[in-house]
Design a binder for these strands. Structure first.
Lengths: 350, 350
DNA sequence: ACCGGAAATTGATACGTATTAAGGACGGCG
DNA sequence: CGCCGTCCTTAATACGTATCAATTTCCGGT
């Protein structure tokens, strides 16, 4: 490999074909005016391009404002968090599939920083703009980055509901409200009318949505508030065996658990149960409100609901392309979750 | 979406700070000459930039530099063949991981063929060049595309050994020869000295390498050729129960199987065994020479070897960057496979 | 032969940044 | 006072493409 050869440009092609750079551009990117080029000229240009091995320079093109047929995928966590691969992979799969189907390429923004904290505007640089638009993904986002991005009118779609004050975002979200409500209904049908709800303290969209769904389900099932225990878990206040026994003593027959990144709530519950000599589901039913990310870790086949992750990825791309091409404003889309029977919930004898 | 707001540029910052665009560039990107800026000026610029919410335009920056900080990943099969996700995913994972670690972004070329057949030079244009370099992946490649690519001096690394006449390619390959040879040694240690070898008819690198390893293993174990049956399988000549019984009658105690895209060889062997009433591993030991792509399909825990797929992906990126930055010529790298005990091989009683 | 007008092509410019050579201000030294 | 060097700043330019206004080419019609 001798001398880092510069790749040929439209100017080179033009020179070879005996036309101007502008003509080459018209032939290559054949916009609306592409048809105005004479067939003979077009052929000459194409042949010259082929001979030189010309390729369009995506960077230059997007600098000018043109399109690249590239969509971006940016994740606020490392693209494939080692311990959550199985959780994130389906999203990627869906995005990739749809991207390919629409004839685009997919740019994974992985560069953003091996150092834990991923920012869109790392070092004051916004790489995202190389792509025509972008799908965003991840739990630990930075709202101000989103606001900034929106302010720049850069087209993007978040996978998951995200709210930023004063900005209308586009997203494709799982219907946590409906799914949680449905789970309550399911439990109620099985005779469970005294419930515990184990949530995380973070005040995030998904936590709020699940709790809203829970409340809604209670109302629908006619379960009064005083039949219910809501417990917010964080590092300091883990779930103790004592508290669990307390619940059982109070007549609680089922626990709804919100999954977390590290499955801590589920693990805590299992530990507490083991310590207290409480069996799942014999002594208490447990329903998980979503997909436990580390499904390997906890071997049980939880009664739960599942996000349509692949579909979410696909729909995100579809909406992104709508934003791009139809010049519409922000759009939101909710998709249904699927209830999974599992074996951690039992019917309650009368 | 009212006024397609353009994000502020260095010119805007310069105007606001009362300096020139060049000075802003010096302050922001503070190259070697960045120190030559007076402290007062620097502060003024930084403040103006902060007030305007300025961010560097990465596109414009890399236009100037010629590089994109993008690596490509091109697969000759669809990026995630639905039935082979588990097989391809680790490669992607390794590539992604290394790409991120080196501070690059990863472009997945998924757009290629809606018409099934994926070619690099679609429409006479080489899409790959949008990236600085490219990792290639896949079984069903087009040699001429590779030759063309190499002729253009485009930096790329294949995952898997690939040979194209007259061209020296770079690749990261699994050491099929060593692993297969080792497998023969393993069988020999367990007392198996009459072997059948089930290969595919395609004359591809991996098939040749495995067979070479097989021959090498035979020599090392001191097994003469007449103790061995080699059977090449294709659609017309599937493995029959009769032939299997024939082998057993001839004293064959172990079969080595080359895995294929669709696990056809393994499935054929299992079918033949079932039909002939032959049990694996009780009546015959079976070793698989690689990873059965559809591991789900065949529930057994095969005695086999595993490619270091993730590592192959990582190394491919590392070599690609060497090609890019150190201006070296083609490089090849072989990585060891890992033998997996499994339960489809038994020790032979004396 | 000339003209009008459509068709085909091109020149010029913008996009936002990095870089380099050149310019200007300033002060010290002879 | 003039010369020179140091330090700081800037004008100019290149990068590769897209786009639009302007220009040339080409024909048919009168």
């Amino acid at each position: 490999m001798a001398g880092q050869r510069r790749s040929p440009t439209q100017v080179d092609v033009a020179r070879r074909a005996g036309v101007s750079q502008a003509t080459v551009s018209l032939v290559i990117s054949g916009g609306a005016l592409g048809n105005q080029v004479a067939e003979s000229t077009r052929q000459a240009v194409l042949q010259a391009a082929a001979e030189l091995g010309y390729t369009v320079n995506a960077v230059a093109r997007s600098l000018k404002g043109g399109r690249n047929r590239m969509l971006g995928l940016y994740t606020f966590e490392p693209v494939f968090p080692v311990d959550q691969r199985d959780f994130y992979f389906p999203f990627l799969l869906g995005v990739e599939e749809a991207t390919a189907a629409y004839g685009y390429d997919l740019l994974l923004f992985s560069s953003a920083g091996s150092g834990g904290d991923r920012r869109i505007y790392a070092g004051g640089v916004n790489r995202l703009k190389v792509a025509d638009g972008c799908v965003l993904l991840g739990r630990h986002l930075h709202r101000d980055d989103l606001a900034e991005l929106a302010k720049e009118d850069f087209p993007f779609v978040f996978v998951g509901r995200r709210e930023v004050p004063g900005v209308e975002l586009s997203y494709v979200a799982a219907d946590y409200v409906g799914a949680t409500s449905e789970m309550v209904a399911h439990l109620a049908r099985l005779g469970h009318r005294r419930l515990a709800y184990l949530k995380v303290t973070d005040d995030r969209e998904w936590t709020r949505d699940r709790e809203a769904g829970f409340r809604q389900g209670l109302v629908a099932a006619g379960i009064p508030d005083d039949q219910v225990r809501v417990f917010a878990m964080d590092e300091r206040a883990a779930l103790s065996a004592v508290r669990l026994q307390d619940w059982l003593a109070a007549g609680i027959t089922a626990v709804l658990v919100e999954p977390t990144d590290d499955d801590s709530a589920i693990v805590a519950l299992e530990n507490a149960a083991a310590e207290a000599g409480v069996r799942i589901p014999d002594d208490v039913s447990v329903a998980v409100l979503g997909d436990p990310p580390l499904s390997e870790a906890t071997a049980r086949d939880w009664t739960r609901f599942t996000l349509p992750r692949e579909q979410m990825g696909r729909e995100a791309v579809r909406i992104l392309l709508e934003l791009l091409n139809d010049n519409v404003s922000a759009r939101q889309l909710y998709l249904d979750c699927t209830q999974v029977a599992g074996d951690s919930v039992t019917e309650l004898p009368e």
